[in-house]
């Protein structure tokens, strides 16, 4: 199934999520979380994976794409631990990682992981959770 909007492709997906802010290009991502999937995009024309959501492929400019679910183990490419000011919806200190899956980078909360355990190069897995009304996920050290 194509999610693109060029030609006769299917129209944008219905919004089925409760993320605080989303649009027609990003609804699939938050809908995926509702379904227990961490989705990125795969270009139908050249196969390039991309994230975060964009209507076009930066490699070939095609607007035809399909969702691609990330699974298994990723690797922490970088991270921070947020301390101040207080965050809505998260306790501080709050670790956050940029992890690589299949060569694509994804940002994920790592609440529940000790700040001192955060390090570049460590393997992580995906765990789905709720963030208030919305479906979300976190990374956990593998």
């Amino acid at each position: 199934m194509s999610y693109g909007s060029s030609g006769s492709a299917a129209p944008a997906e219905e919004k089925r999520h409760h993320a605080p802010l989303s649009g027609k290009d990003t609804d699939f991502y938050y809908n995926g979380l509702e379904d227990g999937q961490l989705l990125i995009q795969k270009c139908d024309a050249c196969g390039t994976l991309r994230n975060p959501p964009s209507p076009g492929c930066g490699a070939c400019s095609s607007m035809d794409w399909s969702p691609h679910a990330l699974t298994g183990t990723g690797t922490i490419y970088s991270y921070t631990v947020h301390y101040h000011p207080p965050l809505p919806g998260f306790a501080s200190p709050h670790p956050i990682a940029v992890a690589e899956f299949e060569g694509v980078r994804v940002v994920g909360a790592m609440d529940g992981t000790e700040p001192a355990a955060m390090a570049i190069g460590k393997p992580v897995t995906i765990e789905f959770t709720r963030r208030g009304e919305a479906a979300g996920f976190r990374f956990k050290l593998a």
């Binding site: 649009g23 975060p52 921070t80 956050i96 940002v107 963030r131």
Partner: peptide, 27 residues
């Protein structure tokens, strides 16, 4: 929409957003 994509993970301040980049620089 990009701010919201990051903010959904609790990455919400200019400091934290740049801190990620500078952690990589240290590495």
């Amino acid at each position: 929409l990009i701010f919201a994509y990051h903010g959904f993970q609790g990455l919400m301040t200019a400091a934290a957003l740049l801190a990620v980049s500078m952690r990589r620089y240290m590495h």
